[in-house]
Simulated scan of single mutants.
Amino acid sequence: MTEIGLVAIGAGLAIGLAALATALAQAKIGAAAIGAILEKPETFGTMLILLVIPETLVIFGFTVAILILFALK
Rank of each mutant, 00 (worst) to 15 (best):
G61P: 13
M47C: 15
E42C: 08
L50F: 10
K73D: 10
A32Y: 06
I34D: 00
G10K: 11
A25K: 06
A11F: 02
Q26I: 14
T46Q: 12
E3I: 11
V64F: 12
F60L: 15
K73E: 14
L67W: 01
M1F: 11
L24R: 04
I4G: 08
L20Q: 03
G10Q: 10
I37Q: 09
I29P: 05
T43N: 08
L13F: 13
L72N: 11
A33T: 08
G30A: 14
A8L: 15
I15Q: 05
L6M: 15
T43A: 09
F44H: 07
G35D: 08
G10I: 04
A33Q: 08
L67A: 15
V58F: 01
A11D: 03
A36P: 05
L57I: 14
L24A: 10
I66M: 15
T43R: 11
A19G: 15
I15H: 01
A21L: 10
V58P: 02
G5V: 09
I53E: 01
G10F: 02
V7G: 02
A32K: 13
V7L: 13
I15S: 07
L51F: 06
L51A: 07
E42G: 04
I9D: 01
I34F: 06
G30H: 07
G12P: 04
A23M: 13
A36L: 09
I59T: 12
A19Y: 00
I4H: 04
A25W: 00
L13H: 00
I9G: 01
L72M: 13
A25E: 03
L69A: 14
V64Q: 05
I53L: 15
A11C: 12
A11P: 05
A65T: 09
V52A: 14
F70Q: 06
I29T: 14
A33V: 07
A31M: 12
Q26E: 11
I15T: 08
